[in-house]
Amino acid sequence: MNGLFAEHVTVRYGRRTVLDDLTVGPFPTGRVSALLGPNGSGKSTLLRAMAGLGEATGRVMLGPDELSRMSLAQRTRRCLYLPQTLPATVHLQVLESLLAAQNATGVMPDVTGGDEIDAALHMLDIFGIADLAMRYMDELSGGQRQLVGLAQALGRHPDALLLDEPLSALDLHHQFAVMDVLRRETERRNIVTVMVLHDLNIAVRMTDYDVILRNGKIIASGSPRTVITPDTLRQTYDIVARVETCSRGLPHIMVDGLS
């Protein structure tokens, strides 16, 4: 099977079982997938479990390779989780922070064939923040730091990229710009990208495979148009919503109220 998938994943925090024998995927390669669901539904937990962070049982496969049998260093090189928290405001230059992320587990084999600094600048450039390279992280806004975090992640050239609310601190322009970059890079590198999203309109318009979670259970999975329906939205978020077609023929979610 292709893509990233997880089988029989169980995660417990203390006595509370967050995910119970969950099987999900495959998240397709070359496509951006979204993980949707209300707060506390287990989205971050699932991403972290697939990335090998925290204690989880079950099997995680990336194509033919079993990630869940690899060491942490190996595994994070293949499959990278980007936490929801922004990079801390440390007295470290943006460029240095990318170099550090690159070298965190020993010097990375040079994926790009180019020079380390060039590669880092290129990553900053595709997110439109090359001009911040020599600025200190503790001088940047939250949104700028989020972009740096994305550049750090993409700069490690993982085969699977698991992003936890990567748009949370960004303005509208940058939300769309980042989605564009992620779609482009995902396709070009033929990698798996899975992101936790709260904006259903972005999900329905700009992702290719969606999974909706509630209380650690999958409500629906598949293409956005089949997954995001009035019915699933009522089940998931307890809201009354419509999926309308806008004047350009694109789907748009309208929320009428609570159910």
Binding site: L53, L72, A73, R77, T85, P87, S97, A104
Partner: peptide, 11 residues
């Protein structure tokens, strides 16, 4: 220094 969770996710 950039965050415990981030460090862990970088391996």
């Amino acid at each position: 220094r950039m965050g415990e969770e981030r460090a862990a996710s970088l391996g």
